[in-house]
Design a protein around this nucleic acid. Structure first.
Lengths: 344, 344
DNA sequence: CCTTTTTCTGCAAACGTTTCCGGCTCCTAT
DNA sequence: ATAGGAGCCGGAAACGTTTGCAGAAAAAGG
């Protein structure tokens, strides 16, 4: 119950609490031999310093709050893994909070993080509503957006790192055009997601430039871009006749759902329908799947985000706002078929 | 920088800090109208109570430490999602720590959790080494094991909830036997995992009872039972001739790796080789995969685990030790083929 | 109207650290 | 010899809460 404290150690070592504190923080004004002696006693007693008390006075918790929509998707899972690693390398701990975007809970989450006195906040794939909320609720806590950045970001005094969603969408359209597709379907972007809005914009702009016919079906089913939603959407789109020869999905998870629906409805992929995903999750590479997709480099994203956030936390430099865009990479597997004559 | 404190609120409201504190904790000895007035002022000022200070004096953080090997596997991801939900329902926060099992870091993790003064510890899928370490390092913090329980658990004064791995392994063997398989391969259990040891035991006992020939190939590749490891293991096992007609993998992720290897090597599943997984992750249900597997009910596991842990944390009942086993469920899809004549 | 109880509020001591400042000892340079 | 400094250590205030205890005001009982 009553754990051993610095005071106990001080008593045993016959020194003051100040000295013990200095030993623990290896301050310069302590004689090496006393330090060693104290540290030895700490080990013997199994002493563990109380972060609560320490943080209370130093007003630094070395904790970074990460709020993301959910962990079920492989993209976010991979991302959080990398975030944790880079944070740890820099001596910080991650506090993971899951709040569905647009949810009321997002407000409680910010309150919670403030109460926890986190040193910084990382807002991942947030709805625009959540993004609006952030500045007013963060109470001066440094924060950076990750993976979901409004186009006017740099004007809005915001720090962010993201993949270049516009380019991602554009690349997708260009790729499908290059394969000879002229009628394409964009299946499943969310209306409230800035990421999806940009991706859609890039896709549509490029499609228009190449004079492709593009239809878009929004995902209003709530929840994330899960396989289940992709399945439901595809079920109803692919049921009858449809003119498109290719579909672009805003996440691999969703694409997998589309794949399932197509399979059940007997439309062959990529025979009748080419399928292009986004994210490059682990399972996209599976032999029976082999989903072509646009890879988001989660490692690079996480690294940049942590790096940027910690700059804000640790430096007391004059405020500056940076927006870092990382370009997605097209990975070709076999879910997209070329419609052009083989000879080219 | 300087955030608003209880003292500020007290000054504005013209009351003492004590009264403000009582308003925030809705203590019974406060007049409802003063409480309302104070709460209103708190809202107006955007006041957020400092959990650090509160926890320091109350010696309750309402934080549960969860340590698990990693988050990349879908099973652990799903589990942590449920853990977070149930904990939140009870007013607790999850502090997620990833440490590969058997790693030196596990020791640091315990120290970290003690320093954070978490109210309880949930040790998920831990190596036996980590389990040994726990009691000595937990410093009296209540803790429960989840998903990886040594057979002598109840003797060892330990709280745990787990799927019944022995039964799981036994069910797998019995199922394969029922389909007519006589030569089977158990591909990829880890030597240092209690889970895998039990599952293996159940598998081997049952195989022996039915006079099947069972070979086991351990996973000494380090890291988790990932798809990558399954792939590597299967690559070398399936390269030449092999007598087995079925393989049992200790996780779906691993099974997916096996699937990939089989595909590349041209051995048909389930034509030449039946494949049985474990976990029932989301992607096992995919149309082109349709992996037969033993489902671990992550929801039930998580619920029981936080339930048990919070009993220990909140009650000051006499110490008791409970071990809860949840039976895995066989879900048949189409990765296992019957070798028996169709009539039957 | 005076006591007794009840209801509400405030004072001050904790909780376990860090850190400013001041003091002691011993060394070095004048 | 003595001043000045460097190196090491301790006292005490602070961080923002909770809580036991006591006091004041109001209500209840005679």
């Amino acid at each position: 119950m009553a754990r051993t404290t610095i005071k106990d150690i001080a008593r045993i070592a016959g020194v003051s609490v100040t000295t013990v504190s200095r030993a623990l923080n290896d301050a310069p004004e302590i004689r090496p031999e006393t330090r060693e002696r104290i540290l030895r006693i700490c080990r013997e007693q199994g002493f563990r310093i109380n972060y609560l008390a320490r943080s209370l006075v130093s007003s630094r918790t070395h904790v970074l709050g990460v709020v993301l929509p959910d962990l079920s998707g492989p993209f976010h899972a991979a991302l959080s893994l990398h975030l944790e690693r880079y944070a740890r390398e820099r001596g910080y701990q991650i506090l993971l909070c899951c709040g569905r975007p647009g949810d009321d809970r997002i407000d409680d989450l910010f309150a919670f993080l403030v109460s926890q006195r986190v040193d910084g906040i990382l807002l991942v794939s947030a709805s625009s509503a959540a993004q609006e909320l952030l500045p007013s609720r963060a109470q001066g806590i440094p924060s950076v957006l990750l993976g979901d950045v409004p186009p006017e970001a740099s004007c809005r005094r915001i720090n962010a790192v993201s993949t270049d969603n516009y380019v991602g969408g554009a690349t997708a359209a260009a790729y499908l055009h290059r394969l000879g597709h002229r009628q394409v379907l964009y299946l499943g972007p969310r209306r409230d997601s800035v990421t999806h809005a940009l991706r859609l914009q890039g896709f549509l702009d490029t499609a228009a430039a190449w004079q492709m016919e593009a239809q878009v079906v929004y995902n209003d089913l709530g929840a994330a871009s899960s396989a289940a939603n992709g399945y439901r959407l595809a079920r109803q789109m692919l049921a009858g006749d449809f003119p498109q020869t290719a579909v672009f999905a805003p996440s691999d998870a969703m694409a997998l759902g589309v794949l399932q629906a197509a399979d059940e409805l007997g439309v062959s992929v990529p025979g009748r329908l080419s399928l292009l995903g986004y994210d490059d999750i682990e399972y996209a590479a599976l032999p029976k799947i082999r989903l072509s997709t646009l890879a988001q480099p989660t490692g690079a994203l996480a690294r940049s985000a942590v790096q940027l956030l910690l700059e804000l936390v640790e430096e007391d430099a004059p405020p500056s706002y940076t927006l870092k865009l990382i370009t997605p990479r097209l990975v070709e597997r076999s879910s997209c078929r070329s419609l052009l004559p083989a000879g080219r």
